[in-house]
Every structure is written in structure tokens, then in C-alpha cells.
Design a protein around this nucleic acid. Sequence first.
DNA 1: GTTCGATTGGGTAACGGTACCCATCGAACA
DNA 2: TGTTCGATGGGTACCGTTACCCAATCGAAC
Lengths: 347, 347
Amino acid sequence: MATQNRRRRVTIADVAGHAQVSTTAVSKVIRNADGVSPATRSRIQAAIAELGYRPQAAARGMRGRTFTIGVVLPHIRNPFFADILDGLHEHLDGTGYQAIMVQGGATRKAEKAAVEALLDRQVDGIINVAPLASKNRMEEVAKERPFVVLARHEKSTAYDSVYDDDQTGAELVVEHLIELGHRRIAHITHQDNAIARPADLLHIIRAETYKRVMREHGLEDEIAVATTFYSEQGGYDGARELLKRSPRPTAIFAGADQAAIGALAAIHEAGLRVPEDISISGYDNTLLAALPNINLTSVDQDGFSMGRVAGRLLLERIEGRTVAARFSVAPKLVARRSTAPPPSAKT
Amino acid sequence: MATQNRRRRVTIADVAGHAQVSTTAVSKVIRNADGVSPATRSRIQAAIAELGYRPQAAARGMRGRTFTIGVVLPHIRNPFFADILDGLHEHLDGTGYQAIMVQGGATRKAEKAAVEALLDRQVDGIINVAPLASKNRMEEVAKERPFVVLARHEKSTAYDSVYDDDQTGAELVVEHLIELGHRRIAHITHQDNAIARPADLLHIIRAETYKRVMREHGLEDEIAVATTFYSEQGGYDGARELLKRSPRPTAIFAGADQAAIGALAAIHEAGLRVPEDISISGYDNTLLAALPNINLTSVDQDGFSMGRVAGRLLLERIEGRTVAARFSVAPKLVARRSTAPPPSAKT
DNA sequence: GTTCGATTGGGTAACGGTACCCATCGAACA
DNA sequence: TGTTCGATGGGTACCGTTACCCAATCGAAC
């Protein structure tokens, strides 16, 4: 009912007729398979160009590949994901593969539905960015389709992993603050709704590392964590909560730049100055962090490379690699003006 | 070669066998078509649940629908797009349709490839957000598949449009600044690379309206436009360019919040205060604008509604509507502390 | 008791590609 | 000269689902 008189698409048979060859020959040409002479090949290519033929992915998918790779993102609000996608697109460019994205949402259930939507659409492989799913679940998916996981730390033989070394990153931040002389360092972390949370979710690693480094420096009594969200609003709420403490922290390590931005707003609203009254650090080194009026100390984790590598690993798996690969990028502390020594000996 | 021993998917035939019916009957159930008794229907549904059957979109696409709608976004860096997607997802939820997104990029060529990628993947319809394509081109696409365009103003009988009334929005900003007493009001606009730029691109409308309102108030001599990009970097560069002028503007209207954020950075770097020395306004009313330390006057354009309506219009078209629909949301000025009267009588 | 229409269910040919296998042919080799 | 072999090209059976049409059944109406 939907289709009125939309004109019929050009098919492989039309091309074959036009070039006076079989559909098999045309198929070989578009797949870049061999078994066609250069002369025939170029005749077919001419016909393809002339008729404006483009293969239909759905039909290809029923026997072979769709040349489509699926990307699951929790949402698109985090600019860090944009870096990842840019890297991915760079790698895919010229390979004939097309990336399609779906929103995974904030719950495991929604994420599962998103992954299934991709499986049902016959993608050749899936890249899952910062998934909430359990390792078991991911291994199930990996059994069905090549699978690459970003920003999770588990070791699995079933899928590939690309991640930032969040332990090192969090260490860098906390040690930076300690070196500056801070003792009352607080942390803003992310709340996920998973019942049995995999310990390898990045926000958990950042939070645990924060606690560990505090303990290692004899600061276990100063540990203070606000559990909100990695978002502007979450950072705002988290910082307000932390600022109510007495004595209040002299530094806040927000687990993500977006939360740090929100924290800056709360601090500003409270009439405090950054960094004179309180230091603040983010994580991700997004574009915003570098702006002179924000000037946020952060951790750079090269999302571009992560996206590029994820693309490479996935294509390798699609081509047949079965042994698991892992790739981690080294985080770098980018100290800016939002962190400084604490106000000298005050409450 | 790619597929090792991935286990075979459950197909409609498996379900039919398990429920002792024909594949036709199963097909009817999953399509919610009639021609099956309630008893048979529930027996089939039980079999589907037991076997964990999910229809394969590729196969469905060869005869009927894929229950997939494609969304083309220029990129995912603009948080305003996230609002649109949230609205879209809200409308799609429970309809059985799945949205997939592809990146349209910054050039017409890339955007065309993205749209074709969706057509080749047999989506049931396409939503194109802020396209660069010509009206002609879009009408071609609309001939092939239901098509809804966001954030473009042309009237077409071939596709539906959902847009913010950018004329009104830009008027609101410029008149707000004029009422405050500003005369030297500058504008930061977006550079696209199109040769023959459709006049209905939103950034062109905002820029043209700015000029018109300036003229209407006898301020044609004060018109000053920096053509960079709707991005943090673009706003930064644009503001630096504008600040070099002598006398410098007392207000800057950035065509998008992201650019306004960058402009704030440049102003801060120049040692100027907002709004005492210079007023600044954005457009889009993103989350950042509302943060107390940014506090940016902006224009709210309800992306959530736009996404919701776009989804509704597209599904209506898929269901068979052929007469074009248009929907515009009314922008609202949100005055915050980044705009104030100009510094009194100075150079 | 026959006819009729509505309801339920199934058979089957597509849809547009690809995988697999076979036929042909000329050249190289024994 | 006959055989083998690689290169080229084609025939055809699928892949999983739906559209279309037909068959069987059954109750109601005549």
C-alpha cells in the first residue's frame, strides 16, 4: 500500500542484459571476485555506470555480506563519541563498508534491543561503545557476529576490545591533585542501573582507582564520592552535593568532562572561584575543555584512534580472524588552569 | 569464509514446524495481518517465544517492509540533534520501527552517499536533518522513498518538512539586542561548501534575517558578519575576527550555541567581560546555555517536538499518505545574563 | 438440502542477489 | 596427438520472507 508508482530499481539482471553477460558475471564484478576477464569487467563496469546500478544490501545479505557495520552508542550527547565515529569513518572510507548507528540507551534492556535490531538487519559486524551488557551476553552476541567492544576492560576470547587505560588515567588525575597539595579530593561518578554491574565498566574503574590512589596516599578518610551521572546535569547535582560537606573538598575529580562542566556551573553558582577556592578536573579532553574560559584539566584518551582501531579490528574479524585482539590507548593528563594548589590551610 | 560455525538462525519455517502450521500463518502473525484464528495466533506466538524467533529484516525487505527508518545527520557533535533523536525515539517506541542513523558529513557528496546507503539498505523511509542537498535532489529521493526533511524551509509537494521558524527566531534575537540599546551588532554564520546554496538553509535564513532587521532599524552600516562554522572553533575564530574591528561590536549574535560558546572563549581571552563589555547570544538553547557559569541568551526551538513530529509524519507517509505536510515550531527567546545594555557611550 | 459468503489456512512464486558447480576453450605439456 | 589445466563465463538452487491466490470448512440463508 505504501508504494505508489515508485519506479523500479535497476537490478543486476538489467546490468547483465545491457552488457550481454550473465548475472553471475555482474555479481563477480561488484564483489571484486575473480573469474572475469579485464575486458568483460570493464564492459560490465560501463553498464553499471550507465544504468546507475547500486546493489541492494538486503538481497546481498541473504547469501553473502551486506557491507554494513553496526555501531551501538549509548546516546549521542557525549562529544567524545563523535571523535570515535570520526576515527571509524576514516578507517572505513574506501573499504565499501557503511557504518550505521543505533542508540543503545541507558538501560540494559534497551541496549539489548538495539543490538538485536542490528543482528536482525544482517550487519556484517557490530561495534558496541561503552556497553552495559554482561560479559556473558556479549560473548553470546560475538558467537553470532563479529563483535568489537569499546571502553570495557574484560578479557574475552570471543570478541575484540579497544579501551582507554582508565586506571592509568584516573591515577594521573588523582596524583596530579595530590602533588598540588590537595587532600580533600572528591569524585563524581556515574550511576548505571545494572543489577550486577560488571566491574569493568569504565566509570567503575575510574571510581575504584580514585579510591585506591587515595588509600595509597593515606587519604582513605577523605574519600568522598557523589554518584550521579556523566552529564552536565549530573555534574551539577554531584558538585552541589559535595560542596555541602564540611569541610568542603578542595578538589573535585569528575569522571567525565561533561560532568565537570556541570560541576563548574555549581561551583560558580556557589560563589566559589576555580581554581583559587576549588580545583576541578574532568576526563575525556573534549573540545570544550580546551576553551580559554573553561580551561579544564582533563585526560586525553584519543577517541579518534580508538575508533580507527575498532574499525580495523572489526574488518579483520569479518575477513576471518578468530583469535581475539585487544588494543589500549594510553591516556595523557592535560593540566590546565582549573587545577592549582589548594587554598592555604583553611577550612 | 567469514562465518565460522555460527549457529543457524531460527527462521519462520522453524516456527511453522514447531507450531504445526504453514509459514504463511506465521508470517501473518508477525505482520499482525488477519486471516488467522485467535487460537492459532496464540499457538504461533507461543512457538515464537519458545524458539526466540526474530524476523530477519533483510528478507522482509525483499518483499515488504524492513520496519527500519533511516536518519541522516550531518554529524553528532551538536547536542541539539540529540534532542531531535530523543523525540523521534519517543514516537517510534512501540511501533515496531527501528531508527538507524548515518553520518551525512559536511559535503553534498558525502550526504548523497549517506542517503544512497540508506536507500540501498531498504529502509522504509528517511528523515534528513539539516540537509545540504538541493530541493531537486530531495524530490528525487522522495520519489523513491517516503522522505521527511528537518530544518529546511522550502515548500515541496514531494516530501514533508519540519522546521523551526528561523526568521522569527533571528528576529527575536536581533530585536532583543536593539531594544537593549545595541547598534553595533555583529553576526557569526556558518560556511557551507555548496556551490549553488539553497536559500532555505537555516544558517542562511538566520544571517539574512539578521541583515534585514538591521536594515529595518536603520543599522545597515553596522552590519558585520563573520563567516566561519557553527562549532566551538568556528565561534572562537569568528569572534576573534569581529573583535579586531574598530569600533568593535557591542553585541554578537552567534547563529548557534556551539559557536556562541567558542565566542565566549575568544571574548574571555581578549580580557573582555560578558555582558558588561559585550553581549552575546546563541541559538538552539542547548543544555550548556542554561548552566549558571555560561548563562547564555539563546533561542529555544524544541528539538524534541521536531523529532516527534518528524517520526509521525514519516510513518504516515509509509502508511500511504501522499499529500505533503509541513510543521513548524515557534521559537522562543530565552534571555539570560549574557545580554545586557551596551557599555554607555564609549568607543 | 443446496447455495453462498465469510473465515481460516496453505501453496507457491516471487524479491535481488550470491555460492557452488559445471562447460567451454585455448595453451601447455607429455 | 591426446591430455591436462587454468582462465573465463554461465546455470541454477538457494537465502527468509511476503503477496497473491486458491482450497477447505462451516454456519446462515434460501
